[in-house]
Simulated assay, not measured.
Amino acid sequence: MLIVYERDTEKIVGSCVSVFDGSDWREATVEELFRHRDTSNLAGLIVEADPRYNMYGPDAFHFVHDEHGTVIGIEHNPPVRLSCDLPDTDGDGRPELLADGQSVATITATLAEPKAGVEVSFAVNRGLLSHRTVTTDENGVATVRLRSIAETVLVRVEADADGHRATELRLELVPPAF
């Protein structure tokens, strides 16, 4: 598979597994993929085809460099690990939060390698977050609080950070006891 990127920014601008040339399959070239573009700032890297590339897209990967800074490979970004302080009382893999509009869960995002000062962005489909963006501490951890709403629904909390794949944590908002 050919990964095409800009030399100065290392931004991935395209990829191609192979092309059919008459009667044979072969690797594509940067020039033939970008015929109508100045290719002087583009470079290509041949890597083993990986279906995750098409599933996750170029933002889920980063380049690997040798000791001289030359691009020598590509790796899948590690995920942001999400957890919360709630129990999963029914064993379905989803922690429960009372759907009373007052209950609060602490959501923790942890980076694969501890690093301070990384901005983690949080998003939620239901409920209220204490912050949309939090900077990691020296342990690579960022924490927000999620306040429930008075609706029994599935809540999805997503976290994303530069150099990491976005991940999702699912919670259930359950009715309070009568």
Score class of each variant (00 low, 15 high):
95 P>N: 13
25 W>P: 04
134 V>N: 14
74 I>Q: 07
34 F>R: 10
10 E>R: 03
177 A>W: 06
75 E>Y: 08
110 T>M: 15
139 N>W: 03
85 D>V: 08
29 T>E: 15
23 S>K: 12
63 F>N: 10
149 I>H: 05
127 G>C: 00
8 D>P: 00
156 R>V: 12
178 F>E: 13
145 R>P: 02
60 A>G: 11
46 I>Y: 11
43 A>C: 15
77 N>Y: 00
155 V>K: 03
176 P>L: 08
131 H>W: 10
40 S>A: 13
85 D>I: 03
84 C>K: 05
133 T>E: 13
119 E>G: 05
39 T>L: 07
65 H>F: 14
11 K>P: 08
43 A>P: 00
68 H>N: 15
88 D>M: 07
126 R>C: 09
6 E>A: 01
161 A>W: 11
160 D>A: 15
55 M>Q: 11
2 L>V: 11
55 M>W: 03
141 V>H: 12
16 C>D: 14
140 G>E: 03
136 T>Q: 07
102 Q>L: 05
52 R>V: 06
116 A>E: 08
97 L>M: 15
4 V>N: 07
84 C>T: 14
4 V>D: 11
18 S>C: 08
13 V>F: 06
152 T>V: 12
169 L>W: 13
132 R>Y: 04
125 N>V: 01
146 L>R: 02
49 A>H: 04
4 V>K: 01
28 A>E: 05
19 V>W: 08
73 G>P: 01
50 D>C: 02
51 P>H: 14
15 S>R: 06
83 S>F: 07
163 G>I: 04
113 E>V: 08
87 P>N: 01
52 R>N: 15
52 R>Y: 15
63 F>Q: 02
115 K>N: 02
81 R>C: 08
136 T>N: 03
146 L>D: 02
160 D>S: 13
94 R>W: 10
163 G>V: 01
142 A>P: 14
129 L>N: 00
33 L>P: 12
70 T>G: 13
12 I>A: 02
109 A>E: 09
49 A>G: 15
90 D>M: 01
45 L>T: 15
97 L>K: 02
34 F>P: 06
138 E>G: 06
41 N>V: 06
128 L>F: 07
20 F>K: 09
20 F>G: 12
68 H>L: 14
17 V>R: 12
78 P>Q: 06
79 P>Y: 05
91 G>E: 11
147 R>P: 05
125 N>Q: 11
44 G>E: 10
40 S>Q: 13
37 R>N: 12
110 T>P: 01
71 V>R: 11
161 A>L: 10
148 S>D: 10
11 K>R: 12
90 D>T: 03
135 T>M: 15
92 D>Q: 05
163 G>C: 04
140 G>M: 04
46 I>D: 13
124 V>G: 11
62 H>S: 15
167 T>M: 13
8 D>Q: 00
133 T>R: 10
64 V>M: 01
98 L>R: 04
113 E>L: 06
135 T>K: 12
106 T>K: 00
2 L>T: 03
113 E>C: 00
167 T>H: 08
139 N>L: 03
62 H>V: 14
93 G>H: 10
93 G>F: 08
139 N>F: 11
45 L>H: 02
165 R>K: 03
6 E>N: 03
138 E>C: 07
129 L>I: 03
123 A>L: 00
151 E>Q: 14
169 L>V: 04
30 V>W: 13
12 I>N: 03
108 T>P: 00
149 I>Y: 05
164 H>E: 14
